[in-house]
Amino acid sequence: MSQWIHTDQAPNFPLPFSQALRAGDFVYVSGQVGVDPETRQVVGSTIETQTLQSLRNIEIILAAAGLTLDHVVKVNAYLSRLEDFPGYNKVYESVMKRPFPARTSVQSGIGDYLVEIDVVAYVHTVRGETKG
């Protein structure tokens, strides 16, 4: 059985998906884009600004599940433009701690958004240490 995770502190869209679901010891966070949680407007016009906001939105959702970015074991990132990869990587590396999660990054047509990021977090492990 899965548990629905939702917070009004993160962006809410009138689309048929959950912000996150917990299934056993894993939390699956749906793709987050670089939008302000209150206005649902895109924040900034650079990959750096939108990547930071996407990760902050993920952080808010994980907090609703009692977790942090340090629980993330897998990241999938979808970039509109391949040339934005260095800027995305720079922000990603400044926010995520070592050892970094496993990651896949691809170019994808995601409309007006420069990046969309989804993650999988594991409840019992913080990267680099085991909680049991």
Rank of each mutant, 00 (worst) to 15 (best):
A65M: 11
Y28R: 05
F26D: 12
R40A: 14
G31Q: 08
L55P: 03
G24F: 15
L114W: 05
N57C: 11
L21Y: 11
Q50N: 03
Q9D: 14
Y113R: 09
Q19P: 06
L79F: 06
T49V: 12
N57I: 11
V123R: 09
D25E: 15
V120S: 05
G109A: 03
I5T: 10
E129D: 11
D84T: 00
H71L: 07
M96D: 03
K90D: 15
Q50F: 02
T125N: 05
V29G: 03
Q107P: 09
A77H: 11
E48M: 02
Y88C: 02
T7D: 03
G132E: 11
V72Q: 09
T104Q: 00
G111R: 03
L69Q: 05
Q9R: 13
V33K: 06
D84N: 01
T49K: 08
G66E: 15
P101K: 04
T7A: 02
R40G: 09
S108D: 15
L67G: 03
R127Q: 07
V123T: 11
F26C: 03
F13P: 13
V35H: 02
T68I: 05
L67F: 12
T7W: 14
G111W: 11
I60Y: 10
I58R: 00
V33L: 07
P16V: 14
L21W: 04
G24L: 15
V115Q: 07
H6W: 13
V115P: 09
R103G: 04
Q50T: 07
I5E: 03
Y88E: 01
A102R: 05
K97M: 06
D25L: 08
V29S: 08
V75F: 05
D25S: 15
T130M: 05
F13C: 14
V115C: 08
A23Q: 14
V119Y: 04
G111D: 04
T7R: 12
F13N: 04
Y122D: 11
R98W: 02
R98G: 09
A121Q: 00
V42F: 02
T7V: 06
T49A: 15
S2T: 14
F100I: 00
R127M: 03
K97T: 02
F26W: 04
G132A: 05
K131N: 00
K131C: 08
E38G: 07
L79T: 05
K90E: 15
G34I: 08
P99S: 02
T39V: 01
I5Q: 04
E83S: 12
T46H: 07
M1V: 08
I5G: 08
N12R: 15
R103Y: 09
Q19Y: 05
D84K: 05
V91I: 15
Q107G: 05
L69R: 02
